[in-house]
């Protein structure tokens, strides 16, 4: 029964007159290219950074910050979809949650990689126990746990239920973790950032084209996330449809 709904949903997406998927893909591709151009060429060097390595590394921040934003957005979407799944029991929401977590984990991996590359020339260390770094890593591990949980449960109905329960608990734990880790590190003034901008430790206030570039990148990444979601959901629908068809043939 559940797989039936997946099949019908699949039909819905293919019979629409206007191809939203294609449009979304093209728009996000153009936006990402523009974001790349703005981040690497158009945005000026940060005025206060002297060392060339620091100036080059500063440009990572145009992709680092949007990636972190998408990471958290993806987990919020996953938690919302999980609540919807437990309430409505429609497979669609399970697919939403699963897709969103996978994309979020990928974006968080980018955050984890780009962060140290920026931090080494700027802070002179790859890693500090700053609340932001710690909470990002914990969230990343939480959602890797989500994917491992999914992989370890065979029964599809149970898999969806367990994953939804876990996603809700994980999403609830993130703000509490955040608070705890912030309190834990306020003893160390050197790593606690005064403003709400994670680049502030590098010591610049954002103005003009730097701010414009960052905002543009956040928008471009959000559209990119939507495009990825569209394709991942479509892929999962197709996968489940293939499973249904295969079972139909096997047990005919």
């Amino acid at each position: 029964m559940a797989t039936q709904t997946a099949v019908s949903e699949q039909k819905e997406t293919t019979t629409g007159g206007f191809d939203w998927g294609l449009a979304l893909t093209v728009v996000s591709g153009v936006l990402m290219l523009a974001a790349l151009f703005m981040a690497l060429v158009w945005a000026p060097d940060a005025a206060n950074l002297k060392a060339p390595a620091e100036r080059a590394a500063q440009r990572i921040f145009y992709f680092h910050v949007p990636s972190a934003w998408i990471g958290f957005l993806a987990f919020i979407v996953a938690a919302g979809a999980s609540v919807m799944y437990l309430v409505t029991r429609r497979q669609k929401w399970d697919i939403w949650a699963l897709s969103s977590v996978e994309i979020g984990v990928a974006f968080f991996a980018m955050v984890m990689l780009s962060g140290p590359i920026w931090a080494k020339p700027t802070w002179n260390v790859w890693w500090t126990w700053d609340p932001r770094l710690t909470i990002s890593t914990i969230s990343w591990l939480l959602y890797i746990g989500y994917m491992m949980l999914r992989g370890a449960v065979d029964n599809p109905d149970r898999q969806a239920r367990f994953a939804a329960v876990y996603a809700i608990i994980a999403a609830m734990s993130i703000p509490i973790n955040w608070m705890a880790i912030r309190w834990w590190r306020t003893i160390h003034p050197a790593v606690v950032l005064p403003g709400n901008n994670s680049a502030a430790q590098g010591g610049f206030g954002m103005t003009g084209s730097i701010a414009t570039t960052l905002i543009f990148c956040v928008v471009a990444f959000t559209v990119f996330y939507a495009a990825l979601m569209y394709h991942r959901i479509k892929l999962e629908n197709l996968k489940r449809r293939v499973d249904t068809l295969r079972q139909k043939i096997l047990y005919r």
Partner: peptide
């Protein structure tokens, strides 16, 4: 209660539980 229904059983429990109970 969830971990017992997974294939690896108790192996998954610490992976799920520790990040949540950090606070």
């Amino acid at each position: 209660a969830m971990a017992v229904h997974t294939r690896a059983r108790e192996v998954l429990l610490p992976i799920m539980l520790f990040p949540v109970v950090i606070p």
